[in-house]
């Protein structure tokens, strides 16, 4: 392989410490707001506070897999290795957040629904999404040829994103135990108390900064790995 388009002297390592500080600070603020500042829910009591980690992890699962899709399209279009690095990084982090979303949701479900797990549409489609992106990561291990591996993974990444809207809209399409969307609603404004909404938005922002920090670090690792791959 003679062609290399790996960017030299990129700005990621320079902004990463600041991104880390912003992520850590906002994470502390979000956690204090979620655990102590937000009011107790009149119906669910305090256990609803788990939503302040469950909803942001769900949002980041969506975001991460949409980034995989966009980076996959960009790889297929341009064949620039940076896009493959972005795709695999976002897939790995997306799997982490999807797993955490399922675990936090399960812990919330036990005292609320009385079960850790139930076979209802939102849970099943989310579990399928988790397995699909674990599969995406495993697929990458099947070939040592960089270009072939990236192309196979990109095709998978383009197809697999179909599950993201299915997960989000499954509560509308099927009779579901899971509650309907309260923030990203097709019809109208968010349907929750303003201080709860503010806490949720701060939590979503903090988790998104954590995702951005993880991405900057993980993409750097992948670019270094590609560099070693291409020089040996």
């Amino acid at each position: 392989m003679t062609e290399t388009t790996i960017p030299r002297g990129n700005t990621l390592p320079r902004i990463r410490p600041w991104l880390g500080i912003a992520a850590a600070a906002s994470f502390v603020v979000a956690s204090v707001m979620a655990l102590f500042w937000a009011p107790t829910d009149t119906t669910q009591g305090d256990v609803y506070r788990i939503m302040y980690v469950h909803v942001p992890t769900a949002w980041l699962a969506y975001l991460a897999f949409v980034v995989v899709f966009l980076a996959s399209v960009a790889w297929l279009w341009t064949k620039r290795p940076i896009f493959d690095a972005i795709a695999v990084s976002s897939a790995e982090i997306g799997v982490l957040f999807t797993g955490l979303c399922l675990i936090a949701g399960s812990i919330w479900a036990k005292p609320t629904w009385g079960v850790w797990w139930t076979w209802e549409p939102r849970l099943v489609t989310t579990a399928i999404m988790f397995v699909m992106y674990v599969g995406y990561l495993l697929l990458r291990g099947l070939s040592t040829d960089f270009s072939r591996r990236a192309t196979r993974a990109a095709v998978f990444g383009v197809i697999a994103v179909i599950d993201v809207p299915i997960v989000h809209l499954s509560v509308l399409w099927a009779n579901s135990l899971h509650q309907l969307p309260t923030v990203l609603r097709i019809a109208g404004a968010p349907s929750l108390d303003s201080s709860m909404l503010l806490t949720l938005m701060v939590s979503v922002g903090a988790f998104t900064l954590v995702y951005a920090y993880f991405m900057s670090a993980r993409v750097s690792i992948e670019l270094a790995r590609q560099g070693r791959l291409w020089t040996t």
Binding site: S31, A34, L35, G45, D46, V47, R49, I50, V53, H54, T57, I93, L96, G99, L100, I103, A104, I107, W108, K110, P111, V210, F214, A217, R218, S220, I221, A224
Partner: peptide
């Protein structure tokens, strides 16, 4: 605070997993 055990478990697992992933990134050279 009711259901404190569930709340603590959920937050601790999420925080712990994010910290573990951060450590794994550092270990891989980030």
């Amino acid at each position: 605070m009711d259901n404190l055990g569930f709340i603590v478990a959920a937050f601790a697992i999420v925080w712990g997993a994010l910290l573990a992933y951060l450590i794994s990134l550092r270990a891989r050279g980030a």
